[in-house]
Design a protein around this nucleic acid. Structure first.
Ligand SMILES: [Mn+2]
Ligand SMILES: [Mn+2]
Ligand SMILES: [Zn+2]
Ligand SMILES: [Zn+2]
Lengths: 149, 149
DNA sequence: ATTGCAAATGATAATCTTTCTCATTATCAC
DNA sequence: GTGATAATGAGAAAGATTATCATTTGCAAT
């Protein structure tokens, strides 16, 4: 039987670069993650992975996101819904923050270098080196025009 | 049997002001919270409450912190340890942020008005009103002097 | 002070997310 | 290809929080 030899996803390559064993399941999950530009939780990743390869278990998804996070491939996020959410570390965009729409739950990303350096400076002034910034703001869309009753 | 008529804690008064029924358990939990200046989780609150009044259950502590949070009396915090932590809203100090020592887990509070207004401005510029800021930074203490091996 | 009723409590079961266990399977260096 | 080793699948287990329900309690009206 011939292998189609389809090119691996960027994350699968990263996986190999880190010396991690590249199993079929990891290849699938890496592909799904490379293909995502949102912030899926494990349940959602599992759904997407099963569509690519049905012989995958949710236990492996849990294991894989943990492995990828420990190896700097993924970033874990907490938007307060009780389940961890993930996104690719160093995708096309670098470090960024998240604004969550209070009414819809929609996640909007933003960057701000002034915020970066302000936080860095505050922490330094307190005698610490900044390791991690965990920041998300919840906002409600401003009504630009008053809606009539 | 005469009641000592001990004065209620600030939080118990707040509880009454909000029209919440002031049970013995709530009085105890309110006292414990008023007496705390750290960020205890429910398990820890339960331990402290039991020392004041042993006839209290952890279910009631869970219920009460939720009630207090819904009524703006408590603020829930997430420092990433898997359990929610609580502190009095509008204690002697107003809104503040948290720096967590990466090595010891110690929580250090800080305020910064520049940070307040920068976040407010960023969110406004994106067309939203700021509802909640969820921010904690993890830092590692800077070694001021090199320790010899 | 007593009564009555709605609300709160205690004990424990259930839920939800994540991790662990262990027998089976697959990867990859040789 | 073979073998050592690591990964997987299925389900149990863990840990935090919420739900259930019979019993108790606060408190407002009498
Ligand atoms: Mn989801
Ligand atoms: Mn604790
Ligand atoms: Zn993001
Ligand atoms: Zn605090």
């Amino acid at each position: 039987m011939k292998e189609p030899n389809s090119p691996d996803s960027p994350l699968a390559d990263l996986c190999r670069q880190r010396g991690l064993k590249l199993t079929g399941q990891r290849r699938t999950i890496a592909f799904v993650l490379s293909d995502s530009d949102d912030h899926p939780d494990v349940e959602e990743l599992y759904r997407r992975a099963v569509e690519v390869d049905p012989r995958i278990s949710i236990a492996t998804v849990y294991r894989t996101v943990r492995l990828f996070e420990e190896n700097g491939i993924l970033q874990r996020r907490d938007f307060g819904g009780g389940r961890a959410r993930y996104e690719v570390a160093d995708g096309d965009h670098g470090d960024h923050y998240h604004l969550i729409d209070a009414d819809t739950g929609k996640v909007i990303e933003f960057e701000n270098t002034e915020l970066d350096s302000l936080l860095e400076g505050i922490v330094r002034q307190m005698g610490y080196d900044l390791v991690t910034t965990r920041l998300s703001v919840v906002g409600r869309r401003k009504a630009k025009t008053r809606t009539r009753d």
